[in-house]
Design a protein around this nucleic acid. Structure first.
Length: 612
DNA sequence: CTTAGCACTTAGGAGCTCCTAC
DNA sequence: GTAGGAGCTCCTAAGTGCTAAG
């Protein structure tokens, strides 16, 4: 039996769950307790008490012997100017500082903060020498790492104390962990991709910038001595505890709860419930957009083709963004003619669309997809008489698309397709890849492969880790060594067998058994290493974390035999009750919040890991 | 309809911690 | 006991999607 709980959570032909306790059954409507608690008027809490944000430490001036040089001569900077100089100095060995936009933005903003005298002297960035400052911080960092154990312990205790004091709030009588309780320290803006604002000065957040949100009757947080809050409000229709406006994009930043909190957990659960609801209507929706490919209205055709991409390729919606304010990235609705190429025939396939564009975080999306003929014809039509820089779907926006989706299913938006397709892919892949007879290592490989299929679908990439080549080599030499040991063991066994042939005594027989056992163990170890190597290589440029955290319904993982096997293997090793190893933190977090999954194995799981 | 503002989720990289293998 | 590395948390940027105003 593959599914321990036989819950085909998002799939077709749902087999009935067997082991979910009544009252917690997630089959039809999900967890009724949470649904009951949901209020229609948007109220998110009735009580909220916290200490306010923890402010980034004030600037500590450089020691006198650490100098800044301009045009080869030492120059003592004013405090404010010096602080900004250290931001740049710290980044000296980062690629950012080699980029012209970064340098220009930095220099512009830096000059604005200089005294008039400094402005008169410091006119060119290339005459600035930050190297001594850079070295100072590198050394400081080294020194911190080399600190004796007790000193490190002291630092950790101090950090823990701050976490203890500022890192939690009381929400409706429960102590909940805050996600980001510290204000963002000042520094230079690090945008992703070709960001026009990279290098700009990110200003220090002061209490006077901060809006506090809490309940009226709670102990209102004290601003740091000599300071005032910008505002204190009591808005229980939002979930944030504090907010401020950042100066780069002029957008709001929030202090919110940790994902382990009830508030976030429920939201997460709801998200997957909406995705499960889509499962029931997705066939109808697909049939409809296929019909709409032939609509007389251009608007409908564009909507239908875009939705097809969102569904088939898991593209993001693609909201419009202000030009020149951010990196030039697109999603589905904002695709431009230059982002696709049409090939009537390519590599033995027909109607191939070649996608090449930068998506969120300037991650490249490159894909060649064979599409249905009407889609291909429509794309040709949409591209006719357009320039490369024109919108592919000129009659479509995310607002139009989402309005349409809302009519098809309550709560349906473009992003739900990503969640749905990610989770259903995990489930289907697990079903296709895992085999009950596999070893635990094999099962884990299968799980990772299923996870990987999702990450590829969602285009979750990472840069190859810096240490990849080296650690791969290390692994390979381990494999080689193991192979040699194995050969050795085979010879030994042969020898032992020969000896038994000759002597026929019990001692020799025992020796054979011993050698056989060793051989078995080595074989197992080798297999495990080989699996590891395969996994590592396949995983080189793919990020699994994002899909695990945001797209995969944890109930699918929990219900899957891979985890049952891992838990059993672990019990052998750690004794009963130690279930934290196979269920990694991301799952634990979700499981703790989704209380019903504590009954995955038909019995409550003891949670032992202290960080949870 | 368009635009701006707001609140929230999703994202990759940095850096830290703790385990494992030597 | 220590080096190396996997896997985690932290950080904060960059998306989505909704609402309200004009």
């Amino acid at each position: 039996m593959y599914w321990r709980l036989t819950t085909s959570l998002l799939g077709r032909g749902v087999p009935r769950p067997r082991m979910i306790p009544t009252g917690l059954r997630a089959g039809s409507g999900g967890c009724s307790r949470w649904e009951e608690e949901k209020t229609a008027d948007g109220v998110k809490w009735t009580q909220l008490e916290h200490r306010g944000p923890y402010f980034a430490p004030l600037y500590e001036p450089l020691p006198d012997d650490v100098q800044f040089y301009y045009d080869g001569k030492p120059l003592k900077l004013s405090l404010a100017t010096e602080e900004i100089a250290t931001f740049y100095a710290k980044m000296l060995d980062h690629e950012y500082t080699t980029k012209e936009i970064f340098q220009n933005n930095f220099f512009n903003d830096w000059r604005k903060e200089m005294t008039p005298q400094e402005q008169k002297i410091i006119k060119h960035l290339d005459k600035c020498d930050f190297r001594e400052i850079h070295k100072y911080f590198v050394d400081k960092n080294e020194a911190r790492k080399a600190l004796p154990k007790e000193e490190k312990q002291k630092l950790k205790e101090a950090a823990d104390k701050i976490q203890e004091e500022y890192g939690y709030c009381i929400l409706d009588g429960h102590r909940e962990k805050i996600g980001n309780f510290k204000t963002e320290p000042p520094g230079l803006f690090r945008g992703r991709g070709d960001h026009p604002k990279m290098g700009m000065l990110k200003k220090r957040i002061m209490p006077e910038d901060v809006i506090i949100n809490c309940s009226k009757d709670s102990k209102i947080p004290e601003p740091p001595a000599g300071h005032k809050w910008k505002e204190v409000r009591f808005d229980n229709t939002v979930t944030w505890l504090a907010s401020w406006t950042e100066n780069i994009q002029n957008s709001l930043k929030y202090i919110m709860l940790n994902p382990s909190s009830k508030l976030k957990g429920e939201k997460d659960w709801q998200k997957y419930e909406v995705a499960r609801k889509l499962k029931d209507v997705v066939h109808k929706i697909r049939a409809q957009y296929q019909a709409d490919w032939k609509s007389k209205e251009m608007k409908k055709r564009q909507r239908a083709v875009a939705l097809y991409f969102i569904d088939k390729l898991a593209l993001r919606a693609g909201n419009e963004k202000e030009e020149g304010e951010t990196a030039d990235t697109v999603g589905c609705c904002s695709l431009r003619v230059e982002h696709i190429k049409l090939h009537p025939k390519l590599d033995g396939q027909e109607h191939v669309v070649e996608f090449d564009f930068l998506g969120k975080d300037s991650i490249r999306y490159y894909n060649k997809v064979s599409v249905e003929k009407p889609v291909f014809k429509n794309l040709q039509l949409f591209m006719k008489n357009k320039d490369p820089g024109d919108d592919l779907f000129d009659r479509l926006t995310t607002v139009i698309l989402n309005k349409h989706l809302q009519n098809l299913m309550n709560g349906l938006t473009a992003k739900v397709f990503r969640t749905y397709n990610a989770s259903i892919t995990l489930q289907e892949q697990l079903k296709a890849l895992t085999n009950p007879e596999d070893s635990v290592a094999g099962k884990l490989l299968s799980y990772n492969r299923a996870n990987r299929a999702v990450a590829i679908l969602c285009n979750h990439q990472r840069s190859t880790p810096k240490t990849f080549e080296k650690s791969m080599q290390n692994l390979q030499s381990k494999i080689d060594a193991k192979k040699q040991q194995l050969e050795e063991a085979e010879k030994e066994l042969k020898k032992a067998e020969d000896e038994f042939e000759e002597t026929k005594d019990a001692k020799a027989e025992a020796n054979i058994r011993k050698k056989k056992k060793l051989l078995e163990r080595l074989k197992e170890q080798l297999a495990k290493l080989n699996v590891q190597a395969t996994d590592k290589e396949e995983n080189k440029q793919i990020a699994l974390g994002t899909s695990k955290l945001n797209y995969l319904d944890p109930r699918i993982s929990i219900a899957c035999e891979v985890f049952t096997a891992l838990i059993q293997a672990d019990e052998k090793r750690w004794g009963r009750g130690w279930h934290w190893r196979p269920l990694s933190c991301w799952q634990l977090k979700k499981c703790k919040t989704w209380s019903w999954t504590r009954f995955v194995l038909g019995k409550p799981i003891k949670w032992k890991r202290k960080s949870i």
